[in-house]
Design a binder for these strands. Structure first.
Length: 296
DNA sequence: TTCCAGGGGTAGA
DNA sequence: TCTACCCATGGA
């Protein structure tokens, strides 16, 4: 086993725990979060091998990543992994304007004070899209099950036997719809996930280009809605993961929080959810993610 | 048995 | 743009 270290540093503090716990993704394979030790694990597939990542806080403005691999890493591998991790942890986000807005809201004052506001995402938009589709019209327990089975059955084996990487578009496409339905148990999502994987694997859809697109958010949203299985909720969630925070992905959970916090437990519409964070303008969704909700 | 979960596709208006 | 209806899955 070859072990190497990659250091990720930044000019501002980067609180690993706050980034990891920004939303539910840390509970979906191939990510694993060790709360006691403050360690983020991920099994990651490179072009030549699968590696095991272990990320930890290393001072206020730096993270250390231990990479375990069967074969020595090339310089290109290391640079590629560093870029993927910077994307995963949203280290490129400039939050100065959002922090100014947070100063006026007591329930968000912790955000600038504790240097929060970065959200956890997958290295590829492909993985984030499939995970988002697996959150629709189901419970978290089932989402974890669907994503877990996808990784266990179709992901490439890592250097530590027990863990696997997120499956490639090719792996999902070639597995076929029957496996996605019968083994992975994606339900009615199976044809959507298969079609997405096939179009990415076949080169008809360049999902990853959207990560660096400078198109207006409305145009980006249209592209996401064109994907079967992606509706208004999923599109908003994916836009958030692309660093466009002007629209909150409204699901039953968001409605419940906004209902109890702002409307005395009365039913709320999607527009009510957006309106609750209107003052945050293009930072609306980020304010929603980090808002300190009352218990219950 | 029925309901519903961090919704979405489709048809029809 | 809005509504009704259907969609697999599994826990309550």
């Amino acid at each position: 086993m070859n072990t190497s270290q990659i250091e990720l540093s930044h000019h501002v503090p980067i609180p690993l725990r706050a980034i990891v716990l920004s939303h539910g993704w840390c509970r979906l394979l191939p990510l694993r979060w060790d709360e006691e030790e403050g360690l983020l694990f991920r099994t990651e597939q490179l072009s030549t091998q699968v590696v095991e990542l272990e990320i930890r806080q290393a001072g206020e403005r730096a993270l250390d990543c231990t990479v375990r691999a069967a074969q020595p890493l090339s310089a290109a591998d290391e640079a590629g992994l560093a870029a993927r991790m910077r994307w995963m942890l949203s280290l490129d986000a400039d939050l100065a304007e959002f922090y100014r807005l947070c100063q006026a809201e007591p329930r968000l004052a912790h955000v600038p004070r504790e240097h929060k506001g970065r959200i956890l995402r997958s290295p590829t938009l492909f993985e984030d899209t499939i995970k988002t589709i697996c959150t629709t019209n189901t419970t978290w327990a089932q989402t974890k099950g669907m994503v877990g089975r996808l990784v266990e059955h179709l992901g490439a084996q890592g250097p530590l036997d027990e863990h696997r990487a997120f499956p490639t578009p090719q792996a999902i496409a070639s597995a076929g719809e029957d496996v996605l339905l019968g083994t992975v148990r994606l339900g009615y999502r199976a044809p959507y996930v298969h079609q997405l994987a096939a179009s990415v694997a076949g080169g008809e859809l360049d999902l990853e280009a959207l990560r660096t697109s400078s198109e207006p958010t409305a145009e980006l949203r249209k592209r996401l809605l064109a994907i079967k299985g992606v509706g208004p909720y999923a599109a908003a969630t994916l836009l958030n993961l692309l660093g466009r925070y002007d629209h909150i992905g409204v699901d039953t959970w968001a409605r419940k929080l906004v209902s109890s916090q702002f409307h005395g437990g009365q039913p709320v519409t999607d527009a009510d959810v957006q309106a609750a964070f209107e003052s945050f303008g293009p930072w609306r969704a980020l304010a929603f993610y980090f808002y300190e909700w009352d218990e219950g």
